[in-house]
Design a protein around this nucleic acid. Structure first.
Lengths: 147, 147
DNA sequence: TAAAACCTGTGAGCAACTCACAGGTCAAAG
DNA sequence: CTTTGACCTGTGAGTTGCTCACAGGTTTTA
């Protein structure tokens, strides 16, 4: 299989295949005649695996680590379980934050229903946004030193 | 006010102030003696406005557009309302996607409870992730040409 | 008066691709 | 048999919104 073939088989952009190869997630052999990269079924498995892992929120370094461990015949699964748990917690945090944001947005929208547009007068840039109230910073975030 | 002063007043990193200045969101005057940037209350308003708008999901180009329109004494509010509506819809889409992701993650987790780790054997990289089922691609996304 | 803390502009780094470019290779059509 | 078009190669840059690093100038503090 050449780049385009494996890319189509996995449903990704050929440039993504090249990128993953550069990043050592895929290790194709070379055709000595023309220096083309040759991918086999194992590479396709790795590529599909990488894409699934990406969907789950694993980073490329994490995926490379899993793949490398698998190459060394170490089971990466305990690590996967661990990262996965963290990832799930983070997804839930993201959901909570977005829900808060949505709440603030909808209440701002309804408040804006009654406000005139108003031309900027040197004091007010846009009342719609200046009317916005800062959310109270969340404790989890500041606990972990985030901004 | 110098960079550090306005940064502290707005609760941002001084480098963010410099960055926004480079991006023409802030237009401080210069002290001719030492070439230092001088920010006034109006700049602080703009900076705070920009930060609020960022929290609402506006991009820097959008914010610059609003600010420039305000400079020209055009009311940016109708545009703000418009972008805001789009932004709200997008936030809601993100929430739906994350909720689907969480659902898939939790069901995968419970399925994994019963699975042994298993050492990679050349056919299986990590059963935990290979067991993962691809979600059906959402129609909205493919409708709009997203990936 | 010297060190510490600030200022300046510029350039690079982050994540995960995506695209562009210039040149080499190959399959089918004329 | 040659041309054309589609593919391949590696590399470098662009995306977003900062953040950090660097080298050198200025101001404040001890």
């Amino acid at each position: 299989m050449k780049v385009k073939d494996i890319a189509e088989a996995a449903g990704v952009n050929p440039d993504t295949v090249r990128f993953y190869t550069r990043e050592n997630l895929l290790k194709p052999t070379r055709n000595p005649d023309n220096n083309y990269q040759q991918f086999d079924a194992e590479d396709l498995r790795r590529l599909r695996f990488a894409r699934k892992a990406r969907q789950l929120g694993f980073s490329l370094p994490e995926i490379r680590q899993i793949l490398d461990q698998a190459d060394d015949h170490h089971s990466p699964c305990p690590m996967v379980r661990d990262v996965f748990q963290h990832r799930l917690a983070e997804v839930e945090r993201e959901i909570r934050e977005l829900q808060q944001l949505r709440k603030r947005m909808t209440s701002a929208l309804s408040a804006w229903q009654d406000m005139p547009d108003g031309t900027p007068d040197g004091h007010t840039i846009c009342r719609l946004i200046e009317h916005w109230e800062d959310p109270a910073p969340s404790e989890e975030a500041s606990d972990r030193g985030e901004e």
